[in-house]
Amino acid sequence: MAKRDYYEVLGVSKGATDAEIKKAYRKKAIQYHPDKNPNDKEAEANFKEAAEAYEVLSNADKKARYDQFGHQAFEGGGGFGGGSMNMDDIFSQFGDIFGGAFGGGFSGFGGGGGQRRVKGSNLRIRVKLTLEEIANGVEKKIKVKRKIQAPGTTYKTCTTCHGTGQVTRITNTILGRMQTATPCNVCGGAGQILDKKPSDADLQGLKVIEETVSIKIPAGVVDGMQLKVSGKGNEAPGNGVSGDLLVAIEEVEHDKLQREGDNLHYDLYISYPDAVLGTSKEIDTVTGKVRIKIEAGMQSGKILRLRGKGIPSINGYGRGDLLVHVNVWTPRTLSKQQKDFFETMQNDEHFQPKPESSDKSFFEKVKDMFS
Rank of each mutant, 00 (worst) to 15 (best):
K3I: 05
R4E: 12
Y7L: 06
Y7C: 07
V12I: 15
K14N: 07
D18R: 04
E20C: 05
R26F: 08
R26C: 10
A29T: 02
I30D: 05
Q31C: 00
Q31D: 05
D40R: 04
A43P: 14
E44K: 13
F47I: 07
A50W: 04
A51W: 05
E55A: 14
E55G: 05
V56I: 15
D61S: 10
R65S: 13
Q68G: 01
G70D: 09
E75H: 04
G76C: 03
G79D: 04
G81R: 04
G83R: 09
S84Y: 09
N86I: 11
D89R: 11
F91T: 11
S92F: 07
D96K: 10
D96R: 09
G100R: 08
G100C: 02
A101Y: 09
G104V: 05
G108T: 06
G108N: 11
F109L: 01
G111A: 04
G112W: 00
R116K: 13
K119I: 06
K119H: 03
N122D: 15
R124L: 06
V127R: 03
V127S: 01
K128E: 07
L129G: 06
T130C: 06
L131V: 02
E132T: 10
K140I: 02
K140S: 05
A150K: 07
A150Y: 04
G152S: 11
T153A: 09
T154I: 03
T157E: 15
C161A: 02
V167K: 14
T171H: 05
T173M: 12
A181H: 14
T182P: 03
N185H: 07
G188Y: 02
Q192W: 08
L194Y: 14
K196L: 04
K196V: 05
S199V: 14
S199E: 12
D200M: 02
A201T: 02
Q204R: 13
L206T: 03
K207C: 02
I209H: 08
E210P: 00
E211Y: 00
S214Q: 07
I217F: 07
A219F: 00
V221D: 03
G224F: 11
G224N: 04
L227P: 04
L227W: 08
K228T: 15
K228C: 15
V229Q: 08
E235V: 00
E235C: 01
A236S: 13
P237C: 00
S242Q: 02
L246D: 01
I249M: 14
E250S: 12
E251L: 05
V252R: 03
E253A: 08
E253F: 00
D262G: 04
N263W: 05
L264G: 10
L268P: 11
Y269G: 13
I270W: 08
I270V: 13
V276A: 14
G278Q: 10
T279L: 02
K281H: 15
I283Y: 07
D284K: 12
D284F: 06
V286L: 11
T287R: 15
G288K: 01
V290R: 11
K293E: 14
A296V: 01
A296K: 14
L304Q: 10
G308N: 08
G308I: 03
I311Y: 05
S313N: 15
R319G: 02
R319E: 08
H325I: 14
N327Y: 10
V328T: 12
V328A: 08
W329K: 15
T330E: 13
R332I: 04
S335L: 10
K336I: 08
Q338E: 15
M345E: 14
P353L: 03
P353A: 01
P355S: 06
S358T: 11
K360F: 05
K365L: 14
K367E: 13
